[in-house]
Nucleic acid binder design. Structure first.
Lengths: 207, 207
DNA sequence: GTTTTATTAAAACAAACGTTTGATAAAATA
DNA sequence: TATTTTATCAAACGTTTGTTTTAATAAAAC
């Protein structure tokens, strides 16, 4: 049907699941704790999403889509200016979208950040689901790394991109905690975070 | 008593728990799956460890102790040679012990690596337990970072050390997977991994 | 006005969970 | 030798898990 009531129910479930998955992980979050906080019926979860695993996928997809889209768009812009962009420019294109999503998520911003950080350190098969949802931009960036750093093997570039992602995920997980890089989600803070991360990672990638 | 039977039981539980916690996380690992693979009685877990949480602490402590000891020892040696060692030397002192532990763990080496990588991305309160067990060397290294890099604030050094740890944990988690830095646990491979990680991180820390 | 269709609600399901209990026997201590 | 301690075991505890089933409700389509 798609009336306003069901939309609210579905979105309420997504929002609460996002927060609880981020806090307690997939296995540590029960559907009953979700429906309790979302104030909906237990059946609503299976009606709207089918299973706990599909609920997790839905939460992940909601965040991953704009991130991947943004990363591909920025990489294209980046390579439109310069056929062989600097690794700094490529890094900035990769790192900015996830931080931008946080900025555009209103009250959910911190939950978004923490969920992004959490979802990809989940044990399999849940971690694989998250990897799937985010992998749409991975190959393009691996290729871009190769063009910006032509002196490294594919294997070397692969684990380096992997460490870039791990670093980014840690920054997201720690958002708003003491001494964390992300201290609020103001545009200025996001910009500063991108700059510091690019500086931190670029020189390592060249090593 | 400490007869050979009980020692075997206790160690069997530790070994299997280490592997399953590493694979499936704390919440994703049931005590019944542990005792099934360890071929011991369910009560043996509570008899030897008291609770699931204390079993996790025991697994963590077994690995963390030699790591922390090694890190403190190497840092002291490092500063004995040079009162203000390079950040590369400090990094090497920090990174070597966890990789050394893997090398000295025989058949458990990959499980050790993966558990180290997993235990500190566990949701609280489990993650806090792991943090506790590993934190014995943290303050000393934060101070050492400050001496090697005197131009940065404590806050900046704190998140930078945090990212060093996150990078190291990722390398450990991915051990023996395709394109991973750690591809086997030979002394040569470990040495090569340390060198690459130091190179990757040192320049970022200076930025 | 009747029949679909979409959504919520409540109850029940079998399975799995961490933990506790009480019995048993071997080992250590006296 | 008698008593206590240590270790192991099967069985059961009450609770919680994800999922399914069965009804009830209300809006939409015919």
């Amino acid at each position: 049907m798609t009336n306003s009531v069901s939309v609210d129910t579905k979105e309420q479930i997504l929002n609460v699941a996002e927060r609880l998955f981020a806090e307690n992980g997939f296995a540590g979050t029960s559907l009953r704790s979700v429906i309790r906080e979302a104030d909906v019926n237990l059946s609503a979860v299976h009606y709207h999403f089918g299973s706990k695993e599909e609920l997790f996928r839905a939460v992940t997809a909601r965040i991953a889509k704009p991130v991947v889209t943004g990363q591909l768009k920025r990489l294209a812009q980046c390579e439109a200016k310069n056929s062989t962009p600097s690794i700094e420019a490529v890094l900035e294109a990769f790192i900015t979208p996830p931080l931008e999503v946080i900025l555009n998520s209103g009250e959910r911003s911190i939950d978004c950040a923490r969920f992004m950080g959490r979802c990809r350190v989940e044990p399999d098969p849940i971690g694989k689901i998250a990897e799937q949802e985010f992998q749409g931009s991975k190959k393009a960036y691996l290729d871009a790394f190769g063009r910006s750093l032509p002196n490294f093997s594919r294997t070397e570039l692969t684990w380096k991109l992997d460490l870039v992602i791990a670093t980014l995920l840690r920054v997201l997980t720690e958002a708003n905690k003491p001494n964390a890089l992300i201290q609020n989600n103001s545009p200025l803070s996001i910009q500063a975070t991108v700059s510091k991360l690019v500086a931190f990672l670029a020189s390592g990638l060249r090593s």
